[in-house]
Design a protein around this nucleic acid. Sequence first.
DNA 1: AAAAAGGGTACCGAATTGGTACGGTATTCC
DNA 2: GGAATACCGTACCAATTCGGTACCCTTTTT
Lengths: 151, 151
Amino acid sequence: MFRINKLTDYAVVLLVDMARHGGQRSAQQIAADTGVPMPTVAKVLKLLARDGLVVSTRGAGGGYGLGRDALQITVADMIQAVEGPIALTSCVESAEDDCGIESLCPMHGHWNRVNRAVHAALSSVTLAEMVRDPLPFRPPVTAPATPPVPA
Amino acid sequence: MFRINKLTDYAVVLLVDMARHGGQRSAQQIAADTGVPMPTVAKVLKLLARDGLVVSTRGAGGGYGLGRDALQITVADMIQAVEGPIALTSCVESAEDDCGIESLCPMHGHWNRVNRAVHAALSSVTLAEMVRDPLPFRPPVTAPATPPVPA
DNA sequence: AAAAAGGGTACCGAATTGGTACGGTATTCC
DNA sequence: GGAATACCGTACCAATTCGGTACCCTTTTT
């Protein structure tokens, strides 16, 4: 697991489509263009608009456009807009949860460190990069340099 | 969101506890020590054992011990052991899912790039580091350098 | 005013997750 | 050699979360 929401995946699809076309386009156009069902498009775009990643124009002839340059929109931004603050554990962000277990909490300083590293990684890829080149597609990383230890 | 499983959080707690004590200890001891309910401890330790992060000894006087040096166990290892391969989207790992939507799939080369960055970040923190210093605890990163765009 | 287009809320079904229970197997000690 | 200890494995249930849809309102243009 450890995967992003489907909605976030949609968000990327929509944003890339918008970046490719440029200007204002209606949610319906975008939906027809990407194949994502219209109600879902509306939902995602609204989330993105809340964080300023896209801007909306109401009324006839309105629609959505990118809120800022594609170079200024990172994957971290998208994930945050759709899924809320990037926090790997419940307590990192605001400590509103009391974690239940005592011996668990002293750990969160470390999670914070990990969290920062992940956030940096996610901020390193921009929408502009995704729009550019089609896809290099290198082999996945699912089997990294940690071979199982023989018993 | 974008957070790890509770079970993964437990895994860290258990591993840190084991690293602190060293040697073989029974699941019950570890459970009593950490406050994590016994059945859950057993479940998590079994997952960790499957990937070689811990080794088990059966029978009376048996128990669990670290499978390798704490320096060789990374956060990425733990997450993978508990939650399966680290893949941000469904299709990155094995392409068994057909993604449903056509225009979505050309995106996964990029997700792969992001995935690799995240994996590197998670591999950069080891169990040994988590066992060491109590906690520096710096401010969270939930509000990064991307201010909302004024309408 | 009427039509077009986004805004917002609420709700429901489905999938995942967290947690528990139960019986089985291996090893040690008496 | 039997009993106690401790891990092994599967299956199951409850609860939370997620994805998706429907409905109605507000704004703007023609």
